[in-house]
């Protein structure tokens, strides 16, 4: 019995060591830029850019097959950070700033089929079968997958409702700064 146990142990350790050494020498050097770009993307894999998730989008971006403005949920902020990372000049004026939208369930039309819950990529919809569902707007990242899934067209993408918690001062518009600079000059 000892020879059986011993020989298998030796065999296992030898093969494991050899594989470990081989893994070190054959390691795939992942594209460093690709990994960094993936880190800058939202990471919710919503697929709105047309690629199969954020990893594929980052790969396309690194290979130069996509624009820095590819990410609709990320909006202008993500486009600007991506452009900075890629070293591109980014013209913010060219892109219309999409207002951040979140899904909203019109409760009168919800039949409680729970299809939107299964589609939700951020677990942002609460509800149960035959109960009215609702969207947690904090968790919703605005991918819009649930909108097309709803059989009664009861889900709509809406701007985030202004409450005391979400209200903020308007950011100064670029034009206003320009006119002031001209006036001073």
């Amino acid at each position: 019995m000892l020879t059986a146990v011993g020989s298998l142990t030796v065999l296992g350790i030898t093969l494991g060591t050899l594989l470990g050494i081989a893994a070190k020498y054959l390691a795939v050097q992942g594209d460093a830029l690709e990994a960094e770009l993936e880190g800058l993307l939202p990471g919710s894999n919503c697929g709105q850019c047309g690629f199969a998730g954020c990893k594929a989008a980052a790969a396309a971006l690194a290979a130069g097959n996509a624009q820095v403005t590819l990410c609709p949920p990320g909006g202008r902020a993500v486009a600007a950070t991506l452009a900075a990372k890629m070293g591109h000049a980014f013209d913010a004026g060219g892109t219309a700033e999409a207002e951040p939208l979140v899904a909203f369930v019109h409760e009168g039309r919800c039949i409680g089929c729970s299809r939107c819950i299964q589609k939700c990529s951020s677990d942002g919809i609460v509800g149960a079968p035959k109960q009215i569902h609702t969207v947690l707007s904090d968790a919703c990242h605005g991918c819009g997958k649930c909108v097309s899934e709803c059989p009664t067209e009861g889900i709509e993408m809406m701007p985030i409702p202004v409450t005391l918690a979400t209200w903020h001062w308007h950011k100064p518009a670029p034009q206003a700064i320009d006119t002031r600079a001209k006036a001073e000059a």
Partner: peptide, 29 residues
Amino acid sequence: PFELGFLRTLTFILVIAAVVQFTEMVVRR
């Protein structure tokens, strides 16, 4: 030599699995 014929399937699978792992690394590279 050690009359361990009863371990044949187990050891062969072990060896095959190791070779496959190695092949996977090579193909990936």
